[in-house]
């Protein structure tokens, strides 16, 4: 209880209450994440359980009763009678899962390499930072496509759908670790010169202990900011890859997959199949990004 009270009283909470943008963005993010987590309790239909679908419901317009069954779908249905609202909630689960996992992967990799690079210095530092530079010259999508291609080549066809999600996570994670590594390296260089680190060296603490126990906790606020902004980027990257057909498989469609499916119907007039998933993606990515921007300003204005 005491911890909660203190957190509510903190500078961060104060700044949060003073920023309408951050509050709205946080509300949208919480609503979207909450509704996708609790999707089974919100919609009666699981759109990926063929048993619960009725083909007769296909192409229902939003808010209008279906001409055959008389059922009404708030956001309409697609060609197979899936409720678009339900597909969005379930699709967002995949998007968020991939996004969070990729960011965690990138964070663990980037923070570790950044710490080592900054603390050890010398050739190790040069090596890690040159790899990071090389990584940056490839667009994220290209890296992802490359990994995706390799993975496709080495996995048997019947298991491709299973591994697709994990390949996505690794591909996106690998394209985003550099940011973490650079920021953590910079922070490590600053902290390393401070006297509390010298005090720890003086009593013979090992480099690993100093990095993990002393330096790491002091580099976490910029990491948190980058993690938030990376989450938005990861969600968009996932959508892009899925839209290109190299991401989440149709059996586990993410928001990107839904958009790809939806665009096939755009010119035949069924706009809602594309429009609503796209709007959701926009709202999610934008809110997470705004939250990240606010966090950056609130935690450390100098990062700007």
């Amino acid at each position: 209880m005491e911890a909660i009270a203190r957190a509510l009283d903190s500078d961060l909470a104060y700044r949060f209450r003073r920023s309408p943008v951050a509050m709205v963005a946080a509300l949208v993010v919480v609503l979207l994440i909450g509704s996708s987590v609790f999707a089974p309790f919100i919609t009666s239909q699981n759109p990926f359980d063929p048993g619960s679908l009725n083909l007769m419901n296909g192409f229902s317009k939003p808010m209008e009763p279906n001409q055959f069954t008389g059922e009404t779908f708030v956001l309409g249905t697609d060609d197979q009678g899936r409720d678009v609202f339900a597909t969005i909630l379930y699709g967002m689960r995949i998007s968020l899962f991939v996004g969070f996992s990729a960011v965690i992967f990138a964070m663990v990799l980037g923070v570790t390499l950044g710490l080592i690079s900054g603390y050890v210095g010398g050739r190790t530092d040069t090596l890690i930072m040159r790899i990071a530079d090389i990584q940056l010259t490839f667009p994220a999508i290209l890296v992802a496509l490359l990994i995706f291609g390799v993975a496709k080549g080495i996995t048997p066809p019947d298991r491709r759908d299973e591994v697709a999600i994990w390949v996505l996570i690794i591909a996106i994670g690998l394209s985003e670790w550099v940011q973490f590594a650079r920021v953590v390296r910079g922070a490590t260089l600053v902290e390393k010169g401070k006297e509390y680190v010298q005090a720890a060296r003086l009593i013979g603490r090992s480099p690993v202990a100093i990095m993990v126990r002393h330096i790491l906790p002091n580099t976490l606020s910029p990491v948190l900011v980058i993690a938030t902004i990376s989450l938005a980027l990861a969600i968009i990257a996932e959508a892009t890859l899925s839209f290109l057909g190299v991401g989440a498989p149709p059996t586990q469609p993410s928001l990107g997959t839904l958009i790809r499916i939806g665009q096939e119907f755009l010119f035949s007039g069924e706009w809602w199949i594309l429009f609503f998933p796209a709007m959701t993606l926009l709202a999610l990515a934008l809110s997470v990004n705004l939250l990240g921007d606010w966090l950056r300003d609130a935690l450390n204005p100098k990062l700007r």
Binding site: K194, E195, Y196, Q198, A199, L202, H214, P217, N218
Partner: peptide, 17 residues
């Protein structure tokens, strides 16, 4: 090492925040 110690200049940088 256990027999000597050091007191640093900056009381702000010498304690891990």
């Amino acid at each position: 090492r256990s027999r000597f110690q050091m007191i640093f200049q900056s009381p702000f940088a010498s304690l891990n925040p």
